[in-house]
Write a protein that binds this DNA or RNA. Structure first.
Length: 570
DNA sequence: GCCGTTTTCGGCCCGACTGTTTTCAGTCG
């Protein structure tokens, strides 16, 4: 059983316990365990099978949960989970995704009306049966119906790239308001999570009502969902929701810290405060009701004996311990990248010419790029056969001659075929400067077959890197069934790089996988996989993900100079 | 159910806002 599967099982148990109104701290224990497992960079099964290691060494895993993990590992399920599901229909869990509906009221809907699914709830609302329950009203029915429709329309996930565009528009609008002081993005957007559920914006002002009125008037805003003295929630025209929080200047740092999260990071921060006889809230750090910090975020951390932490690291994955000992990683940043090693041109499915891609890449400050069009198997994209590819390489050389300040590598994105062979012979691949091997077809093959295909590519000395190694499309297509851990071991052994594909819908490898790859000492290469000129700026999203994984410049191959990079290529 | 620089029991982050209520529980972040 994989870590994500195991994590999902414990998360489901937490949901079920919550509907059962169990001890909230017991529920939290299951959630913490789920998170520990999901973000762990080795297969939990390895620890389970290793007599020298104990599951209880993992944070949040005690004797009981270690025992339960062992049972799941050997039997595939847990008696406790089956018992819970006998009492609570699994369809009820979907209801928890609705805004405004938590476990208590979901349980009431089940008890009073026998509702077990979203569609059941919709029918009950349509026939006005929900408002008949004590504690529910017409307004609740409306909110829930909206929630069901929203869930069906947009789903839950918005790509970071899209959310940034929308958030920037709102920030630009708010900046025109005279009463505005400071303004910052917060929440998961500031932490650069690959998808976000909503946009969080923090501002300072002595006139909150004025700011909120202005937001309500913004033409991007569709409706106001809630509004108080300091906090407002709106729905944008795109369906995305936005939280605005207004504080005074004295509280800006504390509010930014609080509003950036993550929730788990904040819980640990506040626990640390309690240990020191302090209290942290969004207004400041308090000692006996006296505010001792709050104006700057840095001060909030420093009074807790911590250095300031990059928002991307604030996921309670060990960053607080590192901040306490001054050993936080010096994260990679966009200017560290000296080149982009995955892009397409009009020779296949790109929309810009070789020359246009070169010029735009120079504008990004790159010292080198690789042009990597598709190989022939990708017929839809007009993939290149051996003859066409060699001609294309000649064209690349000719175009590059005009631009001596940038090196243009002759590359190829060669397909890993269904039988595990590569789409072009080694005799051709050997003549390339840079070879990315990617899997586009036969994605539904069984895990052992897929893994073998990827291993073949890793073991082939002509292959420089594996492109988008899991094939996932965020929110749209699951990763193919690959044993990533075997790929990591082989990549480390054979010296094959792995890509962090920066396309906002891919971000593949993801942050957890990048951490695992780093542990194996595998060089990561962050590439735009651009199919157009504008796509070239997508590299930043790869960097965000790399930062969330705690990667240093030295962990990423394309932060190196060209000569250093060429020594790393097999 | 976990955990320990006030350790093996008694804690476990903290406040805003809503809807349906007459004072607050539930939900959210």
């Amino acid at each position: 059983m994989t870590n994500p599967e195991l994590a999902a099982l414990f998360s489901e148990i937490a949901d079920l316990l919550e509907i059962q109104n169990a001890n909230p701290f017991r529920i939290r224990a299951y959630r913490n365990a789920s998170r520990t497992i999901r973000t762990f960079t080795e297969p939990i099964s390895d620890i389970h099978h290793d007599p020298d290691r104990k599951l209880t060494d993992l944070p949040g895993i005690g004797k009981d949960l270690a025992e339960k993990i062992s049972i799941v590992m050997s039997t595939g399920d847990l008696p406790m989970r089956r018992e819970l599901l006998n009492q609570i229909p699994s369809g009820l869990l979907a209801l928890l995704k609705l805004p405004g509906l938590g476990p208590k009221r979901a349980a009431i809907l089940h008890q009073e009306l026998g509702i077990t699914s979203l569609s059941g709830l919709r029918q009950a609302i349509k026939s006005k049966r929900v408002r008949a329950i004590n504690g529910f009203g017409a307004k609740t029915e409306e909110t829930l119906l909206h929630g069901i429709e929203h869930l069906e329309e947009v789903g839950q996930q918005t790509y970071l790239s899209q959310a940034i565009v929308e958030a920037t528009e709102i920030v630009t609008h708010l900046k025109t308001v005279p009463a505005l002081g400071k303004i910052s993005l917060a929440g998961s957007l500031r932490r650069r999570k690959e998808t976000v559920r909503d946009i969080d914006i923090l501002v300072t002002s002595t006139n909150p009502a004025h700011i909120m009125d202005s937001l309500a008037d913004c033409n991007r805003v569709n409706s106001v969902l809630s509004r108080g003295d300091t906090k407002m929630r709106v729905r944008l025209g795109t369906g995305l929701e936005l939280d605005l929080r207004v504080v005074t200047d004295d509280s800006y740092g504390a509010a930014l810290q609080y509003f950036t999260g993550s929730k788990e990071h904040n819980i640990r921060i506040r626990k640390r405060a309690i240990e020191r006889g302090l209290k942290v809230n969004e207004y400041g750090v308090f000692q006996d009701n006296e505010r001792i910090a709050g104006k700057n975020e840095k001060d909030v951390y420093e009074v807790l004996d911590l250095t300031w932490m990059e928002p991307e690291l604030r996921e309670d994955r060990g960053e607080i311990g590192q901040a306490a000992t001054g050993s936080l990683p010096q994260l990679i940043d966009l200017p560290d990248l000296k080149g982009d090693l995955h892009m397409h041109t009009t020779a296949t499915d790109g929309r810009a010419s070789i020359q246009e891609m070169i010029i735009r890449s120079m504008e990004h400050g790159h010292q080198y790029i690789a042009i990597t069009d598709h190989s022939k198997r990708v017929t839809m994209a007009g993939g290149l056969d051996e003859t066409q590819l060699r001609k294309h390489w000649d064209a690349i050389d000719t175009a590059a001659e005009q631009y001596p300040s940038i090196t243009v590598l002759k590359g190829i994105e060669v397909d890993i075929l269904e039988d595990g062979s590569l789409d072009l012979p080694d005799s051709v691949l050997r003549d390339a400067d840079w070879v990315i091997a990617s899997l586009h077809y036969g994605q539904k093959q069984p895990g052992d077959v897929i893994t073998r295909r990827l291993l073949n590519a890793v073991e082939n000395p002509s292959v420089s890197a594996i492109g988008h190694p899991t094939g996932r499309l965020i929110g749209r297509r699951r990763s193919y069934d690959v044993d990533l851990n075997m790929v990591f071991k082989a990549a480390a052994e054979y010296g094959c790089m792995l890509e962090l594909n920066a396309q906002p819908s891919r971000l593949d490898l993801d942050d957890i996988a990048c951490m695992a790859a780093k542990k194996h000492g595998i060089p990561i290469v962050i590439n735009s996989d651009a199919h157009s000129l504008d796509d070239l700026s997508g590299l930043q999203f790869g960097v965000f993900q790399a930062r969330r994984a705690g990667l240093l410049p030295s962990d990423v191959a394309n932060t190196r100079s060209l000569s250093e990079l060429q020594q790393m290529i097999r």
